[in-house]
Design a binder for these strands. Structure first.
Lengths: 391, 391
DNA sequence: CTTTTTTAATTCGCTTGCTGAAATTATTCA
DNA sequence: TGAATAATTTCAGCAAGCGAATTAAAAAAG
């Protein structure tokens, strides 16, 4: 954040940093942070004087630079099964307001869906008194397949429409860039940003929840051939497996996603029906509670899910050879019940030399992770465009 | 090749190209090609005058620039089951000499192996009267797992040694850079270089032969997280499949590689034993001939191989979402017998939206493809190092 | 055979983005 | 109040690259 640090991390010289930052400050993109308030209260409870970073050092103190939050705002939309989540953030990425809209998404056609999303975005702008010209970009995270080259939405379990350009109507409504991404990619970006070590090398984030998605991040960036998203959820485990929402059989998702677990549990257990096949968070919590209470059939179900998860990770490691694998999403709430089966199968299914050189992390993330990651992705795209136009 | 073309493809201005090329010519890295000889014989048989490229155009003719073949030489070594293949090429990549050494590679320890490779390289240098200081780099393609970060060889079916640094002794013997890569990566680079369309986007090359390997090329470059190689051959099809050389069960390789097909065929057919489990090319040709002659058990065997190939491609497409998939290697000689089973299974195992956006190519490549690709890879690394040191 | 046209390559003057050295500024410590 | 220290800025200079104009080499036209 201070200029000295920027110089060190970018490898550029001090004068260069000085010139660049002063230009950006003139553009009101950056601003000098109020370091005063923090330093005028050094007598606070925590006296961690030893470290030179927080306590006062000799010499001229560094001026902290921050992104000017007032430079503009970003809206991120997460479109999932029966849920549209919207968030507005300032230029520094801090959330200003958010909303959740529950509805049966599969009942919508493309036009109705776009109208709804536009209305949600407008509500966010109104709620934060954001003038239209301050809106820099809109990010949309979609549960489903997105073609990164064209931005078209190809297929999603949450929608009945396929192969439409959802971005276009929204772009035209607000006149700003609309960035599309798979929701797993957004989660991946959010989690990688939270731990600097994960931003080095290739990190594969497997998101287990309503579906099974994967986001691939290389050196902190979501860049890829045909999109940073990977459809590992629809890799098949054997030729004649359970029916999947996608229409095919034996998908990893059909063994591991919450809808599959709930559907299978209902074949031998009395459970309330799920709205449009999608169990709610409460219903999944109930399922886990019953399993933990000792129902052997449910325990077996989660063991099988552990197997499927191991196959997914094994395939990921073998094909991608990532440095890091993150297991994320609400499905990991039940990881304790999947663990032994998972570990057993993983050892059989990955070459030991590969397993040894891959680090695995479990991060049962919240739903807000999606919009957070989407804000980051959109900011990045907006910044890149800004750079190109001003040069 | 002419300066004008360079300017267009790099996007740099004429003056910039002029300055750069004249510097490189002074370094003897580039040279102006003898365009005269070609143009003094325009009365030759082929009168393709319509196109402006070959026939004389108005205006000052462009001077063709080529890499100066005399700038230096590259040796590429391919280390496979019972075979060490060596090739020496000039700086423009043209082969000058090559050799094949057949022996039981699994009987060698690390020191003996390195000595053999060093002797092969020296033989190549002697055969082409290459002084030591003209040797710019050595490339080694290995059938097995290579850690791209460290260059260490982790495991190979062709060798009994594991986790050794094979590059170091060779680097010390010749005092030049030694580039290690998986053999499938080398094949991928060679095939991608042959077709410009494949150098755009992500191309996954599946090599089917003694083992099943995969090389990943992004925009013509073999760059990746932990190496451009992918161990898709050891992704499992079901928990209790046939035994694989790697020690695990159910690997795609154990259904599809030539050693697996030959081993399985011998359980019901009289065939000569393979040397250290590795059938020769002649033996595999015999197997194919017998299958084509109409043995229903062999036909079934190749159908199953087609299934396994489809699973491999399906997993590749789902996880990687490549723009192009190349099927390469000697195993594809039998593709006609695998085809129907392959296509049938592929349709069941990949989401149609993904299958539609992926182009597949079948290229049954020769063994020389490995060393060719390895020469390219090594030249690239050598050039990069050269750039860094002269700047 | 000379002139015009066309295309390739180079030279020239200029801007831009950087660097290293030195100067300036804001602090803490003595 | 004056060192000592560290962050930033100023300044002069360099190197890469660009646009415009120039030179070079060939074919076509007169």
């Amino acid at each position: 954040m201070p200029r000295v640090e920027l110089a060190r991390s970018t490898g550029l010289s001090f004068p260069a940093i000085s010139a660049i930052t002063s230009k950006l400050i003139a553009e009101e993109l950056l601003c000098e942070a109020e370091t005063e308030t923090a330093t005028l209260w050094p007598d606070d409870a925590d006296e961690e004087d030893a470290d030179g970073l927080n306590g006062r050092r000799r010499g001229r103190p560094a001026v902290l630079l921050t992104l000017n939050p007032e430079f503009g705002r970003i809206v991120a939309v997460s479109l999932r099964m029966n849920l549209i989540e919207t968030l507005i953030a300032d230029y520094s990425g801090s959330a200003l307001a958010q909303s959740r809209l529950e509805l049966t998404t599969r009942a919508l056609d493309a036009a109705a869906l776009c109208d709804l999303v536009i209305a949600q975005i407008e509500a966010m702008l109104d709620a934060t008194a954001t003038p239209r010209h301050r809106l820099l970009g809109i990010g949309m995270a979609l549960q489903g397949i997105v073609d990164a080259d064209t931005g078209r939405h190809l297929w999603s379990p949450a929608l009945s429409i396929t192969d439409v350009d959802l971005a276009k109507p929204i772009r035209e409504a607000f006149g700003v860039e609309v960035v599309m991404a798979n929701d797993a990619v957004a989660v991946a970006l959010s989690l990688v940003a939270a731990e600097p070590a994960l931003a080095q090398g290739l990190t594969a984030t497997l998101m287990v929840g309503h579906g099974i998605g994967m986001g691939i991040v290389v050196d902190g960036e979501a860049r890829w051939g045909a999109g940073a998203g990977s459809e590992i959820g629809h890799v098949k485990l054997g030729a004649n497996g359970p029916q999947c929402r996608c229409g095919q059989r034996g998908c990893i998702e059909a063994h591991l996603a919450d809808y599959a677990l709930y559907r299978d549990a209902r074949t031998f257990l009395d459970l309330p029906p799920a709205v449009s096949q999608q169990p709610s968070e409460a219903q999944m919590a109930l399922l886990r509670a019953r399993a933990r209470a000792g129902d052997p059939r449910l325990e077996q179900l989660f063991r099988q899910a552990g197997h499927a998860l191991a196959e997914a990770v094994a395939t990921t490691i073998s094909v991608l050879r990532p440095h890091h694998v993150i297991l994320a999403g609400p499905g990991l709430e039940a990881f304790d019940m999947m663990r032994s089966a998972y570990e057993e199968r993983l050892e059989q299914a990955v070459l030991p030399w590969l397993l040894k050189s891959t680090a695995t992390y479990v991060r049962p993330s919240e739903s807000a992770t999606i919009v957070d990651g989407m804000v980051r992705r959109t900011l990045r795209v907006v910044d890149r465009n800004h750079m190109e136009t001003t040069e």
